[in-house]
């Protein structure tokens, strides 16, 4: 790919701002949702493990 190819790829025929913002919004929001889903699952697992260990020690 030559630099001009790249420039025209990012320009998207003049609609680059709209197209790239659409993809960026999708990526950011989906990434945030995935991160939140994984971190809250990890937190729930940790709490349950703690309780289970406490229960065994009792």
């Amino acid at each position: 790919m030559t630099p001009t190819d790249l420039t025209s790829f990012f320009a998207m025929g003049g609609y680059g701002a709209f197209i790239w913002s659409a993809y960026a919004v999708v990526f950011l929001i989906v990434a945030a949702l995935t991160a939140e889903s994984l971190s809250s699952r990890a937190r729930a697992r940790r709490l349950l493990n703690q309780l289970d260990t406490e229960g065994e020690n009792r």
Binding site: V30, S37, L38, S40, R41, L47, L48, L51
Partner: peptide, 26 residues
């Protein structure tokens, strides 16, 4: 595919939280 993945991950969280609630931890 991503939707199915997210549903499974969040379902485990919901189930675990329900268990924690029943144990009085939440």
């Amino acid at each position: 595919l991503l939707f199915a993945l997210l549903v499974l991950v969040r379902t485990e969280t919901e189930a675990t939280n329900a268990r924690l609630r029943s144990l009085g931890a939440l």
